[in-house]
């Protein structure tokens, strides 16, 4: 899966959790929790949705590492490569 495909799928999940957010203007290198209205429950739902969508089996120890688009892509690439 390319970075672009990964990014689009991540954005789509984020869009379901925060449908009112303007995701087009999201900076991919910054914590999205500081750019759009995402609380701890939303973040938990986001990580669970990533886990389910990509069947990534995200370890609990990595729970806090999905806070920017860039970090999501890096983490997912690593986890998907590991599971192959």
């Amino acid at each position: 899966m390319t970075d672009k495909e990964l990014k689009n799928r991540v954005l789509s999940i984020l869009g379901e959790i925060a449908p009112e957010a303007d995701l087009d203007s999201l900076r991919s290198d910054l914590d999205f929790r500081e750019q759009i209205d995402i609380d701890s429950m939303d973040y938990l739902n986001f990580v669970i949705a990533l886990d389910e969508e990509f069947q990534a089996d995200i370890p609990e120890t990595e729970y806090t590492r999905f806070t920017s688009l860039d970090s999501c892509i890096d983490q997912l690439k690593r986890l998907l490569a590991k599971s192959e």
Binding site: M41, L44, V47, I48, I58, E60, Y63
Partner: peptide, 14 residues
């Protein structure tokens, strides 16, 4: 407590 749980079963401090 959370280290022994899956992400899905994570408990928030709230």
């Amino acid at each position: 407590e959370n280290t022994g749980r899956s992400i899905k079963n994570r408990i928030l401090y709230n």
